[in-house]
Design a protein around this nucleic acid. Sequence first.
DNA 1: GCAGTACGGCACGATCCGTGCCGTGTCGTT
DNA 2: AACGACACGGCACGGATCGTGCCGTACTGC
Lengths: 199, 199
Amino acid sequence: MKPPTRRRESSRLAILDAAIALCREEGYGKLSIEGIAARAGAGKHTIYRWWPNKSAVLMDALDREMTANSATFPHTDDFVADMRATIASVSAIQANPDFGPVIAALIAEAQQQPGGGRQLLESFFKPRRVPIVERIRQAQADGELRAAIEPELLLEVIFGALYHRLLLQSGPLDEAYADFVVKLVFSGLITRPDGSPIS
Amino acid sequence: MKPPTRRRESSRLAILDAAIALCREEGYGKLSIEGIAARAGAGKHTIYRWWPNKSAVLMDALDREMTANSATFPHTDDFVADMRATIASVSAIQANPDFGPVIAALIAEAQQQPGGGRQLLESFFKPRRVPIVERIRQAQADGELRAAIEPELLLEVIFGALYHRLLLQSGPLDEAYADFVVKLVFSGLITRPDGSPIS
DNA sequence: GCAGTACGGCACGATCCGTGCCGTGTCGTT
DNA sequence: AACGACACGGCACGGATCGTGCCGTACTGC
């Protein structure tokens, strides 16, 4: 009961490699289906058969690279430290010239169709946030964090701050910024017996 | 010493009206210089003479409408209430189908050129945030808010959260969300003698 | 080994880009 | 009031890319 696909894997990989390489070299604006096909030594039909548009190709290509080169999700007994390390890791990926501009291009392209943003969120971003959501829920279960707040809502604010820097280049996407954002978001939420602020 | 412009104002306005109308009707993806020129009854040269690309036209068009239809910036003695009302007003504009998609398109298009995001931020967004920055500085001067934090940095987090919903459609851009974001950001920053949380 | 199908290559009309030219109209100068 | 400069609308052009159709080849599964 194998999947009934006679798709040629070598073409698929050549297309994904060509797409993300061209995007990095020339920018997403100059990325074209014709260019991808030529570079991959493929016919345009082969691309149109398997992907609806060029952003879908690029999304698959980025997905392939990012599953190998993923963020780190430490899980120690210090929740805030875990979150700092996690968000710093995410921001480092977004600051990487090999990934940041491609992510920005995907967000940009999603604006072209109605509902494109939501689809990108559900199919690409949300699955990658699952480990972080789980870590937050764990902290809530442990009584380290107010339980009344949805973890996804917190991550909207945190990732929104990162995307602000990614899309509007308002400053460096470095560890200092990640620390600032995490501290800001959690400084009013952490439950400590003595009420001392987190450092 | 008048500015040496023989530019025809009627053409400029017709082009701006045509651009934003077409963007709303068909979406930014189907917006073309040829379409704008045809709808405005103008020559393409007239557009290329005064704007470098279609996103610049759209930015001018949106700017013209938003200066008339601006957010409200209340200034009472309750800083957090002021911020809630202000951010709720901003989010209402972004939730408006006449403005939100256009703003999203501008952010998306800015990703095409290197530095485009920063340019959009400086020329379009930052000037509109000035009153909010001033209100935050006032609160800091009044001792209502920790003075060590840059207001622009706080607004990055707040607006980032709004843009997350605008660009990724992660939920409604309503007053409840604006309240949540403002409360979250300021809950750890407000200085109160009794240390009670803001409600 | 056979049949089905995915494949690469090529060609096509359509759209939009950015630019050049041309004749007209309007505005500033004298 | 007359002139000259320039912005304007209209049209045309080559180039690029789109999405699709057709054709012959090569690979794959039964």
